[in-house]
């Protein structure tokens, strides 16, 4: 049978972006180790409601690690102690009875706290809007199998495309840089044949938009460790190279020289 845990929680509460925040200390007793971290917060919220305390707002949705909505700093680590795991997939069996758990929202200047543990990550969308797409208006596509893509390239593209946009890379970065997110978005498209025509324009636009909101990468590699999808740092190198190429390349010769 599953065990129950008694935990000491310190959870960040903040009314709004300009309000001062502080930790709420809660004793959470009898939490099942089979509960996910978010189900543990659900339980805490039910108890808070019984005590006439407004439940904690926290980001969550699909609870199966794919939508990228959830994300919080658990004991100083983005998404908690478990590697390659989003907060919703973190289970309480990874904690011990009597543990003190501190929960904070993502923190970065471009991720303002909306309330409690919920932050605004929309600058990530701005990066995609800047160029994270292949312009292929509906109806213009050739037959799918006309474009041959080596399996290795498709796999690399997929590795990059598996980014869930949770923002853990920014949250964990000592510089609050969004390199890993941007690189993942960029690599997804830049390694595909379909992505070539807009490759250099896309790279410039996305990198420069990223820099309007986020810090400068100093290659700590903390983002990769925090990433629930383990996006490799190599993609950042790939992005850096593409960015320099974008600045130097004579784009009208694209068909002659790769």
């Amino acid at each position: 049978m599953s065990k129950n845990l008694d935990l000491k929680l310190r959870i960040w509460r903040q009314d709004g972006p300009d309000a001062p925040g502080s930790f709420l200390d809660i004793e959470a007793k009898g939490i099942s180790e089979d509960a996910s971290f978010l189900e543990m917060l659900d339980t805490v919220n039910e108890r808070l409601l019984d005590d006439d305390v407004e439940p904690i707002n926290f980001p969550h949705d699909c609870r199966e690690g794919i939508c990228g909505t959830c994300g919080m700093m658990v004991n100083g680590r983005a998404h908690g102690p478990e590697k390659a795991t989003a907060t919703c997939q973190l289970h309480m069996r990874k904690f011990d009875d009597g543990d003190e758990i501190t929960v904070e929202p993502w923190r970065a200047a471009s991720f303002p706290v909306i309330k409690d543990l919920v932050v605004d990550r929309s600058p990530l969308d701005r990066i995609v809007e800047a160029g994270g797409f292949i312009s292929a208006p509906t109806g213009t596509a050739p037959d799918a199998n006309q474009i041959l893509i080596p399996k290795e390239a498709a796999e690399m593209s997929m590795d990059a495309a598996s980014c869930i946009g949770c923002g853990a890379c920014v949250a964990s970065c000592p510089n609050s840089a969004a390199q890993l997110f941007t690189a993942a978005k960029l690599t997804h498209l830049n390694v595909l044949p379909q992505g070539q025509p807009e490759r250099w324009k896309r790279t410039e636009a996305m990198v420069e938009t990223m820099e309007e909101y986020f810090g400068a990468c100093t290659n700590h590699g903390e983002c990769h460790e925090a990433c629930p999808k383990e996006i490799p740092l190599d993609f950042i190198a790939f992005m850096n190279r593409d960015y320099i190429k974008a600045k130097i390349k004579n784009r009208s010769l694209a068909s002659q020289i790769s």
């Binding site: 292929a136 593209s157 379909q194």
Partner: peptide
């Protein structure tokens, strides 16, 4: 399927 490929959806491929 054609549309998604044109957009760069990385569907699984054979060698």
């Amino acid at each position: 399927i054609d549309q998604c490929i044109a957009q760069g959806v990385p569907f699984a491929r054979e060698y």
